[in-house]
């Protein structure tokens, strides 16, 4: 099914903007409306083509008028924010995430034309702890409800979306729980982290990371707009990278910080504005998270084009990160030692 009028929230950020431009490129879709509180930056606006920008706050009931007035039939909610610093503090972030989503859902519930709702959620809803099974499937619930931050917001929003789905059984609802994004174009806290020449980690922990290439993320969201499949789907690339392994692949130097010093060190990085990790992101860097993507591949019918390792390598190459320890140098040393050994014989 091709939607006629699509509304995309969070359009002034990477995922929303690129999704809007992908949808706008399809002539079968009549209108693409992008909603956000701030206009998209010029770099993003350039690619958006005929997509229309509506400056509106989804916390405001005005959004109902937009949805009803434009006869929107498909709503893609991508505006979940993970960074308190970007959204003006944790309180504002929670307000924007949770209250904004509630308003949006209330508007959708009132509008009879809406027949499809897609939520961009996150695998962070599974939490992060040493007591978790190695791989999460969609049916698993976290051991403990995420205590705060982005993960808690996402879990609460998913709850409201489930409620909306019950009230409006005629609307097909897809919840996409997405792994952490990397890619040559996207800027996230994780890509900033791996761009540091010396990467701080917590001593004694090594996270299993499952990543998702940003292009795959966009492709999944676009496909979700066009399909009528309801349900919850984990979205992540095949395979796993360990944090230490990723740092080595990027040619960075790992600096293991003992647990007692993690506080001051993260304070320092926050002060220099190089990095800002929330507590749940810190937990992710300690324990990591892997989800099962069988439903995505078999039911949803999408196989990510990049594996985790390929996505990470694409990010490293695309950013042209200058490795501190170049792989070519390591190989040269290896050859040199072997040649010396041969000479000794």
């Amino acid at each position: 099914m091709t939607p006629k009028v699509v509304l995309v929230t969070g359009v002034s950020r990477f995922v929303g903007a690129h999704l809007a431009s992908r949808l706008a490129a399809d002539p079968e879709i009549d209108r693409v409306l992008g909603v956000d509180t701030l206009p998209p930056p010029r770099t993003l606006l350039r690619g958006m083509g005929r997509a229309e920008f509506v400056r509106a706050d989804i916390r405001n009931p005005l959004i109902a008028k937009v949805i009803r007035g434009a006869e929107v039939d498909t709503v893609v909610h991508t505006s979940l924010s993970a960074h308190p610093a970007q959204s003006g503090g944790r309180v504002a972030m929670k307000e924007m995430n949770v209250i904004g989503s509630m308003q949006l859902l209330a508007a959708c519930q009132r509008s009879p034309k809406v027949s499809r709702f897609v939520l961009k959620s996150t695998t962070a809803v599974y939490g992060c702890s040493p007591r978790d099974p190695a791989v999460f499937t969609e049916s698993m619930a976290p051991k403990a409800m995420p205590s705060g931050g982005y993960a808690k917001d996402a879990a609460e929003i998913e709850g409201y979306v489930r409620g909306f789905g019950r009230c409006r059984p005629d609307v097909s609802v897809a919840v996409l729980r997405m792994a952490n994004f990397v890619g040559p174009r996207i800027e996230t806290s994780l890509t900033k982290y791996f761009s540091l020449p010396i990467v701080p980690t917590v001593l004694g922990y090594d996270a299993r990371m499952q990543l998702l290439h940003s292009e795959d993320a966009l492709a999944v969201l676009e496909r979700a707009c066009r399909s009528e499949l309801s349900g919850v789907f984990n979205v992540g690339a095949q395979g796993v990278l360990l944090l230490s392994q990723a740092i080595r692949r990027a040619g960075r130097v790992e600096l293991s910080v003992p647990g007692a010093l993690v506080g001051p060190v993260s304070q320092f990085f926050r002060g220099t504005r190089l990095l800002d990790f929330t507590p749940d992101q810190m937990r992710f860097l300690n324990f990591g998270r892997v989800v099962d993507t069988e439903r995505l591949r078999n039911e949803f019918g999408f196989t990510p084009r990049w594996t985790t390792v390929q996505a990470f390598d694409d990010f490293v190459q695309g950013r042209q990160l200058r490795p501190v320890i170049p792989a070519a140098r390591v190989r040269a040393v290896e050859r040199g030692v072997l040649a010396a050994a041969r000479a000794l014989r």
């Binding site: 791989v135 299993r208 395979g239 392994q245 990723a246 080595r248 792989a327």
Partner: peptide
């Protein structure tokens, strides 16, 4: 050193 090894899930 170059992270060129495989790790399962």
């Amino acid at each position: 050193l170059t992270g060129d090894y495989g790790v399962d899930e």
